Simulated assay, not measured.
Amino acid sequence: MAYPINYFKEDVSIDLRKLSPFKKWLISVSEHHQHKIETLNYILCSDEYLLQINQDYLNHDTYTDIITFDNRDDTDQPIEGDIFISFERVKENAVINKVTVDIELARVMAHGLLHLIGFKDKTDKEKQTMREQEDNALNFLQESTVSRGTL
């Protein structure tokens, strides 16, 4: 089955084929929120690559783990977006959060998708809601969907 989700990499070493099981899960997360995915691109990259995007497009001079670009003209349209993820930051945060890289990557991937669905994370209340939605999304992730510790 062809999924409308694509994976790319810039400046990092990762076997993108290992991410294939996430596709069905991401679709189920979007469907749970009554959204359809037209095209969703995940670009795993280095800290430096993402910093450059942050500087060039958002005028922020800080490292981050994720930047989400909504490519739709109208949020009522099916989801079309590009989500850049620092794989270096994901690996570091997995250690800090005492989870596998797979789970931390899934959380960040869900975070980007949730932004495209309409969730925000600027205020404390929004951050709490976003974290709850991330946890809900991870509940959709079946143990067999993603092999643990393979990234």
Rank of each mutant, 00 (worst) to 15 (best):
M1S: 04
A2K: 13
A2S: 11
Y3E: 11
N6G: 03
N6C: 04
K9S: 15
K9I: 09
R17M: 13
S20D: 15
S20I: 13
K23G: 01
K24M: 05
K24D: 13
S28K: 13
S28T: 12
H35C: 13
H35A: 10
H35L: 07
H35N: 12
I37P: 01
I37S: 01
E38N: 06
E38P: 00
E38L: 07
E38S: 05
L40G: 06
Y42S: 03
I43K: 08
C45F: 07
S46A: 13
S46G: 11
D47E: 13
E48T: 12
I53H: 09
N54I: 05
Y57C: 05
Y57Q: 05
L58Y: 07
T62D: 15
T62C: 06
Y63V: 11
Y63T: 11
I66N: 09
I67S: 05
D70I: 02
R72G: 07
D73H: 05
T75M: 11
T75F: 12
Q77D: 09
E80D: 09
G81R: 01
F84I: 12
F84V: 11
I85Y: 04
S86M: 12
R89H: 13
V90F: 06
E92M: 08
E92F: 11
N93E: 14
I96Q: 00
T100C: 08
I103T: 14
L105V: 00
R107F: 07
R107E: 14
A110T: 12
L113T: 03
D121M: 07
T123W: 03
Q128C: 01
M130D: 05
R131F: 01
E134S: 03
E134P: 01
D135W: 02
N136A: 04
L138F: 00
L138K: 00
L138I: 09
L141V: 14
L141W: 03
Q142C: 09
S144R: 08
S144G: 04
T145N: 13
V146L: 15
V146G: 00
R148T: 15
R148S: 14
G149D: 14
T150S: 10
T150L: 05
